[in-house]
C-alpha cells in the first residue's frame, strides 16, 4: 500500500463518525457488553482489519481508529483480542482459506476470540498422530470466560513453540475476575485437552514470529485505545477548568493550571503521533522496524497516560474522586497498559 502515515484515509473519518454516533457518550455509564458487541458487529467495525473481500479495509490503521473510539467512549469489549489480533492473524496465515469461516464469525460478532497474553505459567503441548494434547494454565486472559477461542502459545517437549487457537471445549475456566480497568479476565486450565491439528496455527520459529506479532498488535491497539481514553480525559478536564470557578475566577485563569493542562495536551499529541506510527508499521515486513515503533509507542503512551490520568483527577479536585463523574473510570481504564504490558521500564530495558 502506498498510504502515508499521518495522512488519514478518507474512510477513517467515516468510521470514527459512525462509531461516535453508535457508542454511548463518554461521560455516560458503559453499555452492556453484549449489546455493545452486537452494535459493533452491525456497524462493520469488527471487520475493518480483514481483507477487502471479507468486508474490511485490510488496514491496521483502521483497526486503531476503532480502538481509539472505543477508548474515547469508555466501551468495554473484546475488540482488541478478537478483531485486532486473532482475526487478522488468521488472515495472515498461508492457509487462510481454511479459517475463512471462523473469520466471518469473528467479523459478524457471533464468535469471540481472546489472547492469553501472559505466558508465565507452563503450558505443555504433546503431539501424537494428528492430535495435540495441552496441559497447563493461562491466567488473566482478557474476556477468557466469554470467548469461544483462546489463542495460546505453548511449548513442546523439544522446547519448540506452538501457537494454538484453543476452542472453548478444550479448557476450563478456573476463576473469572474483573480487573481494575473494568475489563473481565479469566484464568483457564487445560488438562489433557486434545485438539486437532487444524487448531495449531504455527510451530517452531514461525510460531515465535507470529506470537511476537500478536503481542505487538495487541499492545499497539491497546495504545490506540489509551489515546482515545486520554482524549476524553483531556477534553473533560479542559471543559471543567473553564466552568469551575474559585476565588471569583474560572480555574482556567490560573497559570499553574494552564501549564499543567498544556502539558497534558502535549503528552496526548505525542501519544497520538507514535500510536499512528506503530499502527502504520504493524504489518511491515521488517519485524525489527515494527518492534521499535511499538516499543516507542508503549513508552510514550505509558508516560502520557500516567500524567494525564493523575492530573485529570487533580485538576478536578474533589469531584474527580467521585465515582459518579467519569474521570475515575478512564483513570482506571488506563491502568490496563502498565498492568498487562508493564510500565515504561519495559521498553527502556531493551
Amino acid at each position: 500500500m502506498s498510504d502515508l502515515i499521518f495522512v488519514p484515509r478518507e474512510e477513517y473519518g467515516l468510521l470514527a463518525d459512525t462509531l461516535g454516533r453508535l457508542l454511548p457518550e463518554p461521560s455516560s455509564p458503559p453499555k452492556d457488553c453484549k449489546a455493545l458487541w452486537a452494535d459493533l458487529a452491525q456497524s462493520g467495525a469488527l471487520a475493518v482489519g480483514l481483507p477487502e473481500d471479507e468486508g474490511g479495509l485490510d488496514d491496521a490503521r483502521a483497526v486503531s481508529v476503532v480502538a481509539e473510539q472505543l477508548g474515547k467512549h469508555g466501551a468495554v469489549s473484546p475488540f482488541v483480542g478478537s478483531s485486532a489480533v486473532v482475526a487478522r492473524l488468521l488472515a495472515k496465515l498461508p492457509f487462510a482459506a481454511a479459517t475463512a469461516d471462523l473469520r466471518a464469525r469473528l467479523a459478524d460478532g457471533s464468535a469471540v476470540a481472546a489472547v492469553a497474553l501472559l505466558s508465565d505459567r507452563p503450558l505443555h503441548v504433546t503431539q501424537a498422530g494428528g492430535k495435540f494434547t495441552l496441559n497447563g494454565a493461562r491466567r488473566l486472559v482478557p474476556f477468557g470466560a466469554e470467548a469461544d477461542h483462546v489463542l495460546v502459545e505453548g511449548v513442546s517437549s523439544d522446547k519448540s513453540r506452538l501457537l494454538v487457537l484453543a476452542p472453548k471445549s478444550s479448557y476450563r475456566v478456573e476463576r473469572a475476575v474483573i480487573g481494575v480497568d473494568g475489563c473481565p479476565y479469566a484464568d483457564i486450565v487445560f488438562s489433557d485437552s486434545a485438539v486437532g491439528g487444524e487448531h495449531v496455527l504455527g510451530a517452531g520459529a514461525e510460531a515465535e514470529r507470529l506470537w511476537a506479532w500478536c503481542g505487538d498488535a495487541y499492545l499497539a491497539t491497546l495504545c490506540a485505545d489509551a489515546v482515545g481514553a486520554m482524549t476524553t480525559l483531556v477534553r473533560m478536564t479542559g471543559d471543567y477548568l473553564k466552568v469551575r470557578r474559585q476565588f471569583g475566577a474560572p480555574l482556567s485563569s490560573y497559570q499553574v493550571l494552564q501549564h499543567r493542562f498544556v502539558d497534558m495536551d502535549m503528552a496526548l499529541t505525542e501519544s497520538r503521533t507514535v500510536a499512528e506510527w506503530a499502527a502504520g508499521l504493524l504489518d511491515a515486513d521488517d519485524d525489527r522496524e515494527r518492534r521499535q515503533a511499538v516499543a516507542t509507542t508503549h513508552f510514550t503512551v505509558m508516560r502520557a497516560a500516567t500524567k494525564i490520568s493523575q492530573d485529570s483527577v487533580q485538576l478536578h479536585g474533589g469531584i474527580g474522586m467521585a465515582q459518579e463523574t467519569a474521570v475515575g473510570r478512564y483513570f482506571k481504564r488506563l491502568l490496563a497498559l502498565p498492568l498487562i504490558f508493564g510500565d515504561e521500564d519495559i521498553p527502556l530495558a531493551v
Binding site: 501472559l118 473469572a176 475476575v177 474483573i178 480487573g179 481494575v180 498492568l339 508493564g342
Partner: peptide, 17 residues
Amino acid sequence: QMRMLGPDALPVSLAGG
C-alpha cells in the same frame, strides 16, 4: 507497589461477584 505487581494487581473483584 502497583507497577511492581503488574498483572497481579489487575483483579479487584470476582466476576458477577
